[in-house]
Design a binder for these strands. Structure first.
Lengths: 348, 348
DNA sequence: CGAGAAGCGGCAATCGTTTGCCATTTGTTG
DNA sequence: CAACAAATGGCAAACGATTGCCGCTTCTCG
C-alpha cells in the first residue's frame, strides 16, 4: 500500500537539504552561521529554503541549543491597567530583540507564581516579574538559577527595575501640605505588596518632615470596586486629603465621593499613584504620581537581554526610574483652614 | 580530567528512571498514562519525580507529540484597552485549559501578522486573531491549515466570535433620534477595519429607517489623540450627535469638546463603541455600546479548544455575542429642537 | 498442572535541529 | 611542484521525550 500522497507537514531541514543537494548540517549552518559556508552554496540553500517556505522548528532548536528565544512575563493581575503599561513595554522591546513573550497572570498568588515558573521552565530563557509576591529568599534563589528581572521589587542580588514612586509621594506631601492639609490619609494596598510598604513609609516620612499627620486605612485590594470602601474609611479619619496606593483605587474613591456628595477637591483632595490610562480624563482628573510604566517594561527587558546575551557574568543591574507628581483637578486647598496659619513655612 | 562535579541541569526522565529503577519509557508512561503502569511502580516513580523536582521539557515533548500546549494571541495594538479585555479573557480561559498564551502585537500590519504566524508556527497549537488585517482569502487559507479563531471578523469558513456592535448601533440611533437628533455624524475608524465598515452600515441603515441623516467623517486612527481631529470634523458637519468608531476615539473627542467649550451633551451628544475601561468614569460618562469583550476572548478560546481537542472534524463554529446600549451622561436631547415635532413616533 | 491471556515494563526508533569532529577540496607559499 | 593551511561540507551523536512493538511475569481457568 503506497503511503498517502498528501504531505501536510511543514518542510524540515532535510527537505531543504534534498532540494539544494547538500547535507542537513550544511543547511543548518548556512541558515544560522552564514560565514561558515561558501557564498554560492549558501545562496542556493537560501533560495531552496525560501521556495519551500522553510522555518525552523522552535522545539527542535530549543532542544539542542537550550535556547527558546522567549521570555516569560509574570504580572499579578492582567486586569490592572498598570500592568498593561508593563506589558506594552516588554512586548515592544522583546519583539525588537527577536523574542516571544509568554504572558502569565499569577493572580496575586506566590504559589501560582512559583508553580508556573517551574512548569514552564523549559519554555523560556528568562523571566520578568512585575510586583512579585514571592519571599525575598525564594526570589533571590530563583534569580541565582535563572535570568530574571523584577519590576518594583528590590531584593539583594536580584536585578531589578524600580519605579521610584516613594520619591513622588514625597512631592505629593509637599503639594498637599503647601495647600494647608495637615491630616493626610493613606489608603493602603495589599499587605503582600512590597510597593505598598514603600509608599506608606515615604508618606509617613514626608509628613513627619513637614509636620503633618498621617493615618493609614486599609488594606484594600487594588481594584476600583474597593475604592468605595476606601473612600468611606478615609472619610472616617477626618483627613482633608488622601493618597491612594494606586490610581485604580483612587479612581474608585472618586466615584464613591461623588456618590456621597463629597466634593473633590473642595471637601477632600485625592492623590493617586502610577498615572494609569484614565487618570487624566476621570472626573475630576486625578492628581497622581506619574510613573514611566512602559519604560519600566522596556528597561526590564534590556537588563534581561544583558544577562542573556552576556557571557554569563552576573549583571546584577538595578535601575531606578524617577517619577514626578502630576497635579490635576483632584487636589487643592484644604477644606478647613488650619487653626494656625502656616507660618512655619519659613522655619529654619 | 574528571568532569566537573556541578550538575546545574534540570532532571530528565532518565534521572527519574535511574532513581526509581525502571526504564525511561516506564517513567514516561507513569507520568502521562497512569493506567498503563502498575500502581506500586507508579507510586515509586511519582515519589522519585517529586523528590527530584522533575518537570517535563516542553520542547522535547513538543518535538515528539507535535503539541506545544500554547496558543498565539494576535492583537493589532496592545496599546488599545479594547484588546486588554480580549487578552484577559483569553488568558483566563487558556490557563484553565492548561495552555500558555503567546501574546503578539501585530501593529496593525497584515504583513507582520502573516510573518509572525509563520515564524512561530512550531510554537503554537492554535491561533486567536483579534481584528485581523489579513485579506479574506489569506485568512481562510490560514484557517484551513491551522486551528484558528477570529474575533470581530466574519469570513466564510473561518471560525469566529463576532461582537454584534452593529446591533447596538441600531439602538444608539433609536436613542438619539428619540431625543430629537436628526443629523448624526459618524467618526470613522481605519479603512482596513472590518468592524468599522459594519458599524457605519448599521448606523446608516438605522438612520434611514428612522428618517435621520448621517454624515461620515474620517477615517481616524482609533487613538485618543485622534479624538481632537475627529471632534473638529464633527463640529463642521453641523450634526447634533455623533457616534464614534470606538470609545478611545470618543473619549478623545470629549476632551477636545471640553477644550473648545462645546458642552456635552447640551451642545452635542457623543456615543462610543465597546465600553472600555474608562468609559464609565470619564467626564461626562460615555454613552456607549457595551460589548462583552472579555467574554469574546473566552468564547474564542473555547471554540479553539473544540478544534484542538476534537478529532480533526472541522468545527467551523461562529458565535455572535450581543451588545447593548449603555446610556450615560454624554448623550441627551438635541440642542436645537427639530422643526417639526416628532409626530411620526406613532407611525404605521 | 498446563496453556492462554492479560498486565506490565523494556528496547529502540523517532521528532528536527545543532555541533564537534573529520575528510575533502582548494588555495597559498617557498 | 610539493607541502601545508584554510575553507568547506558531511557524518553522526547528541538534546529529552513519546510510543509501537515485543517479551517476560503472573494470573486464571479448565
Amino acid at each position: 500500500m503506497p503511503q498517502p500522497a498528501e504531505r501536510p507537514a511543514r518542510p524540515t531541514l532535510a527537505d531543504v537539504a534534498a532540494a539544494s543537494g547538500v547535507a542537513i548540517s550544511t543547511v543548518s549552518r548556512a541558515l544560522t552561521r552564514p560565514e561558515r559556508v561558501n557564498a554560492t552554496t549558501r545562496a542556493r540553500i537560501e533560495t531552496a529554503a525560501r521556495e519551500l517556505g522553510y522555518t525552523a522548528n522552535t522545539s527542535a532548536r530549543a532542544l539542542t541549543s537550550g535556547q527558546t528565544r522567549s521570555v516569560a512575563v509574570l504580572v499579578s493581575d492582567v486586569t490592572n491597567p498598570f500592568y498593561f503599561g508593563i506589558i506594552r513595554g516588554t512586548q515592544q522591546e522583546l519583539k525588537s530583540a527577536g523574542y516571544t513573550q509568554l504572558l502569565v497572570d499569577t493572580e496575586e498568588s506566590d504559589e501560582l507564581e512559583d508553580a508556573t515558573l517551574r512548569r514552564l521552565r523549559s519554555s523560556y530563557d528568562g523571566v520578568i516579574i512585575a510586583a512579585s509576591r514571592l519571599t525575598d529568599r525564594r526570589l533571590s534563589e530563583l534569580a541565582g538559577r535563572i535570568p530574571l528581572v523584577a519590576i518594583n521589587r528590590q531584593t539583594r542580588g536580584v536585578p531589578s527595575v524600580f519605579i521610584d514612586t516613594p520619591l513622588g509621594v514625597g512631592h505629593a506631601v509637599e503639594h498637599l501640605v503647601s495647600h494647608g492639609h495637615r491630616r493626610i490619609a493613606y489608603a493602603a494596598g495589599p499587605v503582600t505588596s512590597w510597593s505598598n510598604e514603600r509608599r506608606w513609609r515615604a508618606l509617613r516620612a514626608g509628613a513627619e518632615r513637614l509636620g503633618a499627620e498621617v493615618i493609614r486605612v486599609g488594606p484594600f485590594s487594588p481594584r476600583r470596586i474597593q475604592g468605595a470602601a476606601a473612600a468611606d474609611a478615609v472619610l472616617n479619619t477626618g483627613a482633608t486629603a488622601c493618597v491612594a496606593f494606586n490610581d485604580l483605587l483612587a479612581i474608585g474613591m472618586l466615584g464613591r465621593f461623588a456618590e456621597r456628595g463629597v466634593r473633590v477637591p473642595d471637601d477632600i483632595s485625592v492623590v493617586g499613584c502610577d498615572d494609569i490610562f484614565g487618570a487624566d480624563f476621570c472626573n475630576p482628573p486625578l492628581t497622581t504620581i506619574t510613573a514611566p510604566i512602559e519604560q519600566a517594561g522596556r528597561v526590564a527587558v534590556s537588563i534581561l537581554m544583558a544577562q542573556l546575551d552576556g557571557s554569563g557574568a552576573p549583571v546584577r543591574s538595578a535601575a531606578t526610574l524617577p517619577t514626578h507628581l502630576t497635579i490635576r483637578g483632584s487636589s487643592g486647598p484644604a477644606a478647613v483652614p488650619p487653626a494656625v496659619p502656616p507660618a512655619g513655612l519659613t522655619r529654619g
